[in-house]
Amino acid sequence: MSDETLRLIEQTADDLFAAESGAARAALAKGEWPEGAWQAFAATGLAQAALPEDAGGAGLAAGLAVLRAAGRHAAPLPVAETMMATLLCHAAGMEAPPGPLALSTTAAGEDGDGSTVRRVPWARFASAVAVVGPEGTLTLRTPADVVEGANLAGEPRDDMALSGPPAAAGTLPPDTDGTLLMALARAAQLRGAMEQALAMTVRYASEREQFGRPLARFQAIQHHLAEIAGEAAASGAAVDAAAEARTPFAFAAAKARASQAAGTIARLAHQVHGAIGYTAEHDLHHWTKRLWAWRDECGNEAHWWRVLGTDAGQGGGAALWPMLVAAGTAGTDAAAAAGEGARP
């Protein structure tokens, strides 16, 4: 896919989410499903963006670009879940149901005890819930017995019983890891939210004056801005590199890095905004709450650090460098584990 197509997709997503997200957030805050925003999104076909080109999509990088835009505008829709559930269905050779989809994956603590799945994003509003189970099973279920919950940003995170037979069941190819895919998707959203937090903070620091000059003239503030920019850039670079390398290591590193950056960025963005940023009325919290929520979803940084730290030691110290280079390079053995095309 050309850079031009990629830019076009990201622009389409950016325009859409910019137009729809504000009103949709207000609806969700009242407990309503933002149907209008969802319909507008569904009409673009962007939910299929992450599919391989021969399956009517534009590839993983395009999907991540859409998610970045969704994060940038704090779009209160199951964009990531629908997109990744669609991708997993394709990988398992199953038909993805129409409508908003929820997705339950198995990173630390989310898979419940086998009879329930916990904190499933958007389950109550979904037409179907895709459940990644042990040993690579993928089942589709109609949401039932939902116990409603929410993350810090007020996005639905529901518990659901796994009662009765699923509506459909399949098996994911061994090289397709739904948990890692969803972690990467969340990292892409985090990256978008970071971008917006940075932009808002730079703008505020340039407009707000104290001691007769804009805050941005104070070096302490400039260094906060530089730190936010650096953390956001590192998260973005890790996500971009993962889309390119497609190795399990790279997916895990992207979520670990973005989750780590999220807390630093939220803290500094609020510090620079002062009291006004601590109000419900100011918009900043829409992004910082997502940073705080998303960093812990799909495995937080400590979870993925443990995975990476254990992986890193498998070959001993001398093997570390070749392993890191291979994990960051497309077309290596490790890449097969994350697969090509349909296989994330």
Partner: peptide, 11 residues
């Protein structure tokens, strides 16, 4: 601790 360093290095 190692994973943290490795993720940082990767980025």
């Amino acid at each position: 601790a190692i994973g943290r360093l490795v993720a940082e290095f990767y980025a």
